[in-house]
Design a protein around this nucleic acid. Structure first.
Length: 426
RNA sequence: GGAGAGGUGGCCGAGUGGUCGAAGGCGCGCCCCUGCUAAGGGCGUAGGCGGGUAACUGUCUCGAGGGUUCGAAUCCCUUCCUCUCCGCCA
């Protein structure tokens, strides 16, 4: 959601940012709508002013028992009522039209976001470790899981359809261990507050984080008009909706382990094998709420928190700067962490860390009082820290052994009762 | 699910048709007094949009959205939420 004043003062920058996203310029359209709205409001204000003054006099006249004067004044303002109502109606229509346009516009891009059309134009920012050399042909996670008898796509399909999985025994426990490890890391080492928040949310919450109105087809809606969260970014960020924070409270940092639900409409045929792309998956999310001048450093910090997870697991990864064409509409800058998957022989996204600026805060009226006591919109950030379903894949493929068993990363062993590997013999 | 009560400024809370953007309190800010284990006094203090260099000023906002009225925090309708009692259930 944009501040029209800002667009008015920076129309070129605004359109340039849209263009980088491959969208049409909109500043002229926005400003035209706003001009029309302003003209209406001005006229309306004038009428309301006259009416208010007269009404006050009528009240005084009646209080003094001067019925003649009151009647005279009443006659004077008789036609104003219709005008004001008409004006209000026009203003409503125009404001709705303007808001509808603004609500659908993507966020600005930061200058250091690389230009590009799609994921092929993303730019590597950094890299951790090197892919392990196997002296056998590494398998994909679903081969490993099925051979272990602890990952079952067939029964999942019978129960729920495609893009679901059933995990059992140690593999199920491994995913639980990953979630616990990440939560403990973020709460103990990184200063995040653990949160359990709703998985079903109202439309307003999804609007606040930007999934609505334009991306409704990506999420599941319930029969009672709620939505299953596609990410706990929604629940966590909306924790500050419609609030007035004080500057001493900032930054706020929240983390949560939740299931996420995605319709995956439009990704038919992509990643159909295995559990890389599911309708339901677990993810540890990080959300930060900061003062405007702190959000960019918080972005780097949050990336570091997500990287710490990967370093702890000792899984090779690279960090990518998403290019303009590959970024989500609500974000100003996004860094993805891509884990090395030996079975696929490629890097795949396992975390996405983004800064939204005040885009979400405006949509959810999340403000704080700055040092001067002046209300300002906060900045919001979110990042996966990290997706546990995909972390499971990464651990299985990177830690696989020739006999199909899987070594357990050291940091997870305490969460696995001291177990050091997963094998079929169980 | 049934019955009832209520949603007011950063927070608490008064206000049932006219001079209410709204008493009082808390919190916060500035100033003064005091000088000893802690307090006393004064003043100021909502947000959005618009006009003005500024002082200032117009308008809107009392959960949200409509309506009635010359005039609505106050009346009516819709809706969301909270609380109490009953029922049901984990």
């Amino acid at each position: 959601m944009f501040d029209v004043k800002w667009i008015r003062n920076n129309p070129e920058a605004f359109d340039a940012s849209l263009k980088r996203r491959g969208a049409e310029p909109q500043s002229a359209h926005v400003l035209a709508l706003d001009d029309a709205r302003k003209a209406t409001v001005q006229q309306l204000n004038e009428w309301q002013g006259t009416r208010n003054a007269s009404s006050k006099q009528i009240g005084q006249a009646k209080a003094q028992g001067d019925e003649d004067k009151a009647q005279k004044l009443l006659a004077e303002v008789a036609d104003l009522k219709a005008k004001v109502q008409q004006g209000e109606e026009t203003e409503r229509t125009q404001t709705a039209e303007l808001n509808e346009l603004l609500a659908g516009l993507p966020n600005l891009l930061l200058d250091d976001v690389p230009d590009g059309a799609d994921e092929n134009d993303n730019v590597e920012k950094s890299r951790f470790s090197e892919p392990r050399q196997f002296n056998f042909e590494p398998k994909e996670h679903y081969e490993l899981g099925e051979q272990l008898g602890q990952m079952d796509f067939e029964i999942a399909a019978k129960i729920a359809g495609s893009r679901f999985v059933v995990l059992k025994n140690d593999v199920a426990r491994l995913e639980r261990a990953l979630g616990q490890y990440m939560l403990d890391l973020h709460t103990r080492e990184h200063g995040f507050t653990e949160v359990i928040a709703p998985l079903l949310v109202r439309s307003e919450a999804l609007f606040g984080t930007g999934q609505l109105p334009k991306f409704s087809e990506d999420a599941f809606q319930t029969t009672d008009d709620r939505w299953l969260i596609p990410t706990s970014e929604v629940s966590l960020t909306n924790l500050v909706r419609e609030t007035m924070l004080s500057h001493e409270e900032l930054p706020l940092r929240f983390t949560s382990l939740t299931p996420c639900f995605r319709s995956e409409a439009g990704s038919a045929g992509r990643d159909t094998r295995g559990m890389l792309r599911q309708h339901q998956f677990y993810k540890v999310e990080m959300v930060a709420v900061t003062a405007p001048d702190k959000s960019l450093e918080e972005h780097e910090r949050m990336l570091g928190c997500a990287e710490a997870v990967m370093k702890g697991l000792d899984i090779p990864y690279r960090v990518m700067r998403l290019c303009s064409g590959d970024m989500g509409a609500t974000m100003m800058r996004t860094f993805d962490i891509e884990a090395w998957l030996p079975g696929q022989n490629t890097y795949r996204e396992i975390s996405s860390v983004s800064v939204a600026g005040d885009y979400q805060a405006r949509r959810m009226e999340a403000r704080y009082r700055d040092e001067n006591g002046k209300p300002q919109y906060v900045h919001t950030l979110n990042g996966s820290g990290v997706a546990t379903g995909r972390a499971l894949i990464a651990v299985m493929e990177n830690y696989q052994q020739e006999d199909g068993s899987i070594a357990i990363p050291e940091v997870l062993q305490s969460y696995m009762g001291g177990q050091t590997e997963i094998s079929a013999a169980k």
